[in-house]
Structure formats: structure tokens, C-alpha cells
Write a protein that binds this DNA or RNA. Structure first.
Length: 421
DNA sequence: TCTGGGGTCCTAGGACCC
DNA sequence: TCTGGGGTCCTAGGACCC
């Protein structure tokens, strides 16, 4: 007999909020260029985005005075890339994030195309998280525009199911940054995440234990955080469309079809059961850099170009490690062929390192173990098995030594730039 | 005209050790 | 000569998320 009620032991008297900024990148760009308000705007395309020229050529005018006609249109863009964020006006045309720019250009050629400006987005990201921490100190960072917040013991966090505190946070973020966000408050992270989607943009949704059947069960299984395209397809194949239908299945049946771990997890998720804690801080597992080329490259015919890119990626990863004060033991590469198939190779060293030469040499060894007949579109370098360099001070005190290392790294890398291995 | 870049976690097989 | 589990580390691939 399937359970029709949530398992009371799994639903704690917690109040957990999920908050994410609305159309974050596009909203930041609209603050910078208010004249674009209401226009379809997409962010993406990166460094080759045509409007770099525009940004340098605005005749010294303040950014907000640049005339609409001078902004580049999506329809004029030719090249690779995907949309990172689309403004709500652009979404009306069916344009959305992760969509290829060329495909989006067909749907909405008149949309304005802006390049991503991560430095600026990170500033806003820090600002909105600082505001939250001031009000509610138990916050889990889930990326540049998303957090979980434990409302349980925050004053006012229980009032009206959390609505009062959610409203306060929402208002304070808007006052200080001009950004809007959507908040869901529920007994756990799983439900809070789903709830935050209910009233986008600039909305608040409260989900209580007893709302499971009315508010959660009608939703598609795909709305469960962790059910992606593959799992969703498989669920459809098994005749399951909604979370409610999933909740009718026996745990053994789910385990038979999805394996022990995923099966048990799906069983819980369909019942709104999630005991995972709000994690305040966590150590990174890996640090990586990767790049998709402007055109597909061949290991033999484009050896010099590829070698230079490879070296640059290693240098960037080394810089990232040193800046963040980590060393890593496992060096890996990733490449993606022109048919989009990706492969990885890695090698674990006996000692941790953040040295660009060591990374470059080891990554070169990895590259040797990979078939290189086919053209490739992407190359990446990754360092894992990280360990924090506890004494960041040592780095400071040894600055002259560190600079010597830097110089040696640089000369080694320049000497080997055209090489692939 | 396909499909970014930065991550995390899981699985599964093999090596190796006890 | 054959046959055990269990634990850990390494490697490769893939699903998923922001």
C-alpha cells in the first residue's frame, strides 16, 4: 500500500528558504543601461560579442545615455556561443538560457545582445549575500545568484510560515541593489527550491507540510531538483509524469528501475522528504579552466595554436590555485571533439602542487593518452584532490621567492608555448 | 546554426592491501 | 591451487546544476 501521507519523521519543524535573483545578469545590465528596460535583451557570446566595439565607441557618453540604435542586435551576430540569461521581455519570444545564439537569433533577431561581465555580476552577488547574512546568518551559497537560508531560529522566521522574513529580505535586497528576487519557504531545501519558482519574478511562496498534495504532487517530475533530462525521459517511459504519480510507486519498484541510491531518493523526494542540512561553508573539490575555440582545431594542423591555448589554460588554473591558496594532486584534461563527444584523462601526482610548469607537464602527459585524429572544439585543464594551503601568510612572507617562481614559470611556459605535450 | 564555463556527485572497474 | 570479503585509491564517464 503506497503512502499517501508524508512521512512525519522526515519533515522537520524547520523553515528553510530558497532565494534566487530574477534574470540576474540581464537585471544587472538593465541597471547599467536603463534605456533597455522592456526591450528583449540576451547576455552571452562572450569575448567575441560584437558590442565590445560599441562599448568602446560611445563617444565618452555616460553608459545610460547610449542610444538604443547603437546596441548590437542578436540578428547581426555570427559565431558560436549560448545565451547565459535572457530578460523577461526576451523570454516572450521563446528565447532562454543555454540556447544557442544562432537559434535564438531566428526567434528574436531584434533582441539586444550584450557580453557577459562576470566581474560586475560577482560584485552584485557579494552585495546581496552580505545583505542576507546581516539578517539571517545561516546561509548556504549555491552559486552566483542563489542561496538557501535557514529561517528556523531567526526572529520572525516562523511568522506566517516565513513570509514576513522573506519579505524583509526581498525588500532590503531591492533597496540596496535594485535587484528583485524570488523566495520559497518550506520545511526543507527540496520543497523550498520548488516553492521559489511558484511566483516568479519578485514573488514569495510558502509551502507547509500539508500543502504537499495540493501544491507539489501536480508538478512534473522534472521540477524535482536533481531530476534532469535523462531521468525525466526514463520516468516518462515508465508512464510517470507528475510527482504525485511518482509518489504512488513502491520504494522497491523505484529501486529496481533506478538503483538503490536514486530509487530511494526519488521515493523520498516525491513525498517531500529531505533532511539535507543548510551547509554554511564547504571546501572546493576541483578548480578548472576550459575554452571552446572559435573554430574547430586539429592537433597536427593547428599544433602551435592549440599548444598556446593549452599553456594558457594551465597558467590560468595555476593562477587560480595560487590566488585561492589551494594545491592539488590530480591533474586532468578534458577535450570535446567536433562531434561533441567529450573525453577526460587525469593523472595523480605524489605531491600537491600549484605550479604552472608541473601542471603543464602532467597535463601534457594526459594529452598523449588521447586519440587526436579528430578535430576538437574544446580543451580544458582541471586540478582536483585539493588541499588548502593553510598558511596563506607563508605565501606573503615568501613573496620574493614566489615572484622568482612566477618568473621561472613564465619563462618555462613561453619556451614551450608552441608544443603540445 | 546546434550545443559556454564553472562546478558537484555518482557509478563502476581495476589495483592493491589486509 | 583456488578462493573469500572489505577498504581505499585511482581513473573515466556521465548526469546534473547554476
Amino acid at each position: 500500500m503506497p503512502h499517501l501521507q508524508p512521512d512525519p519523521a522526515g519533515l522537520r519543524p524547520r523553515r528553510i528558504a530558497h532565494l534566487d535573483l530574477d534574470a540576474f545578469y540581464a537585471s544587472v545590465e538593465l541597471l547599467r543601461y536603463p534605456q533597455l528596460k522592456g526591450m528583449p535583451v540576451v547576455i552571452g557570446g562572450g569575448r567575441r560579442c560584437a558590442d565590445d566595439a560599441m562599448l568602446q565607441d560611445h563617444g565618452g557618453l555616460p553608459l545610460h545615455q547610449i542610444q538604443l540604435a547603437r546596441f548590437p542586435r542578436l540578428g547581426d551576430y555570427t559565431g558560436r556561443g549560448v545565451i547565459t540569461t535572457a530578460s523577461y521581455a526576451a523570454r516572450q519570444f521563446g528565447v532562454g538560457s543555454a540556447m544557442g545564439l544562432m537559434k535564438a537569433a531566428k526567434l528574436c533577431p531584434q533582441a539586444i545582445l550584450l557580453p557577459v561581465d562576470f566581474a560586475e555580476y560577482r560584485r552584485y552577488s557579494r552585495a546581496f549575500k552580505d545583505i542576507i547574512l546581516d539578517i539571517a546568518p545561516l546561509m548556504e551559497d549555491r552559486g552566483i545568484d542563489e542561496v538557501y537560508i535557514d529561517f528556523t531560529d531567526v526572529p520572525g522566521g516562523q511568522r506566517d510560515g516565513g513570509r514576513v522574513l522573506a519579505r524583509l529580505i526581498q525588500k532590503t535586497i531591492f533597496q540596496h541593489t535594485g535587484l528583485t528576487c524570488s523566495v520559497g519557504v518550506a520545511p526543507n531545501k527540496l520543497l523550498a527550491k520548488m516553492a521559489s519558482e511558484f511566483n516568479k519574478p519578485n514573488g514569495i511562496a510558502i509551502v507547509l507540510e500539508q500543502d504537499l498534495q495540493s501544491k507539489i504532487w501536480p508538478l512534473a517530475c522534472r521540477k524535482i531538483n536533481g531530476v534532469g533530462p535523462k531521468a525525466d525521459q526514463k520516468l516518462h517511459g515508465l508512464g510517470l509524469q507528475t510527482i504525485g504519480e511518482l509518489a504512488q510507486k513502491e520504494v522497491d519498484w523505484l529501486i529496481d528501475h533506478f538503483g538503490q541510491k536514486t530509487g530511494a531518493w526519488l521515493y523520498d523526494a516525491a513525498r517531500g522528504v529531505d533532511a539535507s542540512p543548510v551547509v554554511l561553508d564547504s571546501e572546493p573539490v576541483s578548480i578548472s579552466r576550459e575554452t571552446t575555440f572559435e573554430r574547430d582545431l586539429h592537433a597536427v594542423r593547428d599544433k602551435a595554436e592549440l599548444g598556446a591555448i593549452f599553456t594558457r589554460l594551465c597558467q590560468q588554473v595555476a593562477d587560480d590555485l595560487q590566488r585561492k591558496a589551494y594545491v592539488g594532486k590530480t591533474i586532468g584534461i578534458k577535450l570535446r571533439y567536433d562531434n561533441f563527444k567529450a573525453i577526460t584523462r587525469d593523472q595523480t601526482l605524489s605531491d600537491h602542487t600549484a605550479d604552472a610548469r608541473t601542471i603543464r607537464q602532467t597535463a601534457g602527459q594526459c594529452l598523449k593518452r588521447v586519440p587526436l585524429h579528430q578535430k576538437i572544439r574544446l580543451l580544458g585543464v582541471r586540478v582536483a584532490s585539493l588541499r588548502p594551503v593553510k598558511d596563506a601568510l607563508v605565501y606573503e612572507q615568501n613573496r620574493p621567492l614566489a615572484q622568482t617562481n612566477k618568473a621561472q614559470e613564465a619563462s618555462y611556459l613561453i619556451a614551450n608555448e608552441g608544443q603540445l605535450f
